[in-house]
Write a protein that binds this DNA or RNA. Structure first.
Lengths: 129, 129
DNA sequence: ATAGTATTTCAATATTAATTGAATCAGTGA
DNA sequence: TCACTGATTCAATTAATATTGAAATACTAT
């Protein structure tokens, strides 16, 4: 697995998250997890108009998640499938990024934690008495 | 780990994805992975105005990612931290949802795959000869 | 009470993105 | 060429969201 030493997410993270953060696109993605499909088939399965599907598929493609190719017999058909390498890459990245073990315990930054800029002596001395 | 037999994501998935799909909120989230913080501290760290931070923190809260509490000494300070249980839950869910091993190989749905509604006999017989 | 601080809420604007209908493109078959 | 099909592109509208400045809240300290 790649090492994710850097916290800052790469250039393509926001497009990916935005691609998935839309209900119809999430449904398309989930459908493509079940195998490749085409515009017409997605119209049946998801009940969306062709042009809207085309738009969402383009967003998913620009996010790198989806690849397309034409049918070799009848070039009118275009097949869409998930890019397995990219899915794997984000799978690994999310496993790192959302790892609860990475959540640090940091002393609270205000008076209570005694690490604000202005040290609240009064509160502390009052507490100490 | 929970079992994610159902493909369809729950009610709260879209809010979660939308919460993370915004650059400033993603930065806030990443910062909170380093430990709790408060509005003032986040202003320093991220260079965002207080009211904007307040808004984004509310979005993260409504997505269930962030919890808040007031300082017990000086109630003007409000501390924000990540909800570890929720982060864990999404960590596990993404591990399932983006698992490349789940991507199925499905025969192509058009003439090439011979699984369209109209069976392209001509193409197949031509191929068989 | 008064002033001051940390934060939120409100109202308005600006920006971005989803949806829709019509038109167009690309490919097939006669 | 012509008609037909699967799919995309375009232009316009609508809806959702980020951002901004001003006002308000909640709390503390004097």
């Amino acid at each position: 697995m790649a090492d994710f030493t850097d916290d800052l997410p790469g250039e393509d993270l926001i497009p990916l998250l935005k691609a998935l953060a839309e209900p119809n696109r999430l449904r398309i993605f989930a459908e493509l997890m079940h195998g490749n499909s085409c515009n017409g088939k997605l119209q049946e399965k998801l009940g969306l108009p062709a042009n809207l599907l085309s738009h969402h598929l383009q967003v998913l493609s620009k996010a790198g998640l989806v690849t397309s190719r034409r049918d070799v017999i009848d070039g009118r058909w275009i097949y869409y499938s998930l890019n397995q390498d990219i899915v794997m890459r984000w799978h690994d990245w999310f496993a790192f990024f959302l790892d609860p073990a990475r959540i640090k315990e940091r002393p609270f930054c205000g008076p209570e934690g005694n690490c604000g800029e202005e040290i609240p002596l009064t509160a502390l001395t009052l507490d100490a008495r």
